[in-house]
Nucleic acid binder design. Structure first.
Length: 420
RNA sequence: GGAGGGUUGGCCGAGCGGUUUAUGGCGCAAGUCUUGAAAACUUGUGGGCUUUUGCCCUCACAGGUUCGAAUCCUGUACCCUCCGCCA
């Protein structure tokens, strides 16, 4: 959420930003509604002032009559103010955040800028298999029964891969704990305000599972519960930045992605993620530094796993509405013959913290909105695609990354004689 | 699911129809003092409107009663205790 005052003072910038993010907004209508809002505020304030003065005087019938009149008038303006505020907030909630100057302007993913490449893309002297084929051969993924039990995009992870899945998540979680991040297990059943707060709503409602008639939804990422952790609180500047490494299951309807990546583990309804979340003070330079730190963390993880990857600086047209700068980290996936997104690293500025009312008191006593950032540390099973496909051998076996071998207790996944 | 008790500022905690502009304490910040720090003292410490002065709102949230509500009534949310169920 941007403040109306910011929009008023940076009208052209806000209009440009929305256009660059392929969004339409009506800034003039917003400003007109705000003018009306101020008018109603003045009217109600004057009436309240009169009422307060009245109630301090000695009461007689004449004052009582005026008191009743004030009550009626006040109610009229208060009701109009409420309607006005609703209309204003509705429009405001659709205004996307303004990207930083270094973000390239572009229409879609073709305009993203590749800023880094790491690792050697493997060259196979045999015909490499996809993770779907490997999963079947090694008896470690069961899509058929997954669909039977869970439905479209359902899957079971089995045997060594189920163990590897846990090992990966734990390895990454523990690595960031050692880096000083506060470990946290986040709820996946969350209230709607957290989804609005993170900026998932109003844009991405169709992608979220809603439970029954309660105010209960399934989280699509731990970003949602963890960013909202400090909602309605005022933190001390000395305690910032707050850095979290969060674990949660993630649920996505993928309603806008029918027909896209329909096979395999790439795009599934249910997965698990270790997520980095930072709540920081209102400082762009520090935010940029923390953004780089989050980036370094996720790249180290891929390097330790020895997976080839590249980093993209996302253009305006391929960014989410809340974000002001974003890196996507993509890992090489042989079956796609391309890199596939495995991490997404964003600065949100105060967009989320305004919606969630997260503030801090600075050393001079002033209260201001925090900044928030987040980046994936590891999402599984998507990362398993890269591991299975990059480390496959001619005989179909898969070598486990060295750093994980002590955790899983084996060094290779080999094909089963009698796959179930 | 059932029965009670609770929710006041960054935190603790008074107030239970009108001098409450929400007592008091703690924490935090600034200032005075000091070589520096501590202590002590002074001031400040939620949001909005307003050029200044000042005004309005804020006692979980939403309604209601009243000339007037932190205070009385109703509903909702959340927390605590106990019973039941349960990995």
């Amino acid at each position: 959420m941007l403040s109306v005052n910011f929009i008023r003072q940076n009208k052209q910038k806000v209009i440009e930003a929305a256009k660059n993010k392929n969004r339409e907004i009506d800034v003039d209508k917003i400003l007109k509604l705000d003018d009306q809002r101020l008018d109603f505020i003045h009217k109600t304030q004057n009436l309240r002032e009169e009422r307060n003065k009245l109630s301090k005087q000695k009461i007689d019938e004449k004052l009582k009559t005026r008191g009743r009149e004030i009550k009626v008038e006040l109610k009229k303006f208060e009701e109009q103010l409420i309607i006005n505020n609703q209309q204003l907030n509705e429009l405001l909630s659709f205004v996307p955040n303004v990207p930083l100057d270094e973000v390239p302007i572009g229409k879609d993913s073709t305009d993203n800028k590749e800023i880094k490449k790491w690792g050697e893309v493997p060259k196979f002297d045999f015909a490499p298999k996809s993770h779907i084929e490997l999963g079947k051969l090694l008896d470690v993924i069961d899509f058929k029964r997954g669909a039977k039990i869970s439905g479209f995009r359902g899957y079971f992870l089995k045997n060594e891969l189920a163990v590897l899945h846990f090992a990966l998540l734990f390895y990454v979680f523990n690595k960031l704990v050692k880096n000083g991040y506060t470990p946290i297990i986040a709820p996946a059943v969350i209230k709607s305000f957290t989804l609005f707060g993170s900026g998932q709503f109003p844009w991405g409602e169709q992608d979220v599972y809603k439970l029954n008639d309660d105010d209960a939804y399934l989280a699509g990422t731990a970003e949602q519960p963890v960013t909202a952790y400090f909602s309605d609180e005022i933190l001390a500047e000395n305690d910032l930045p707050k850095k979290f490494v969060a674990f949660s299951p993630c649920f996505r309807k993928e309603a806008g992605a029918y027909g896209k990546d329909t096979k395999g583990l790439y795009r599934v309804h249910e997965f698990w993620k270790v997520e980095q979340v930072i709540i920081a003070k209102n400082d762009y330079d520090q935010a940029r530094q923390l953004h780089e730190e989050l980036q370094k963390n996720c790249e180290e993880i891929l390097q330790e796993l020895n997976l080839p990857y590249r980093v993209l600086l996302m253009c305006t047209g391929d960014m989410g509405e809340p974000q002001i700068k974003k890196y996507d980290t993509e890992t090489w996936m042989p079956s796609r013959n391309n890199y596939g997104e495995t991490m997404s690293n964003s600065i949100m500025g105060d967009f989320q913290t305004r919606r969630l009312n997260i503030k801090y008191r600075s050393k001079d006593g002033k209260v201001n909105y925090c900044f928030s950032l987040n980046n994936t540390a590891l999402a599984s099973p998507r990362i398993l695609i890269a591991i299975l496909e990059n480390f496959q051998q001619k005989d179909g076996s898969v070598i486990i990354p060295k750093v994980l071998q002590p955790l899983v207790g084996f060094s290779r996944i080999i094909s089963k004689n009698n796959p179930a």
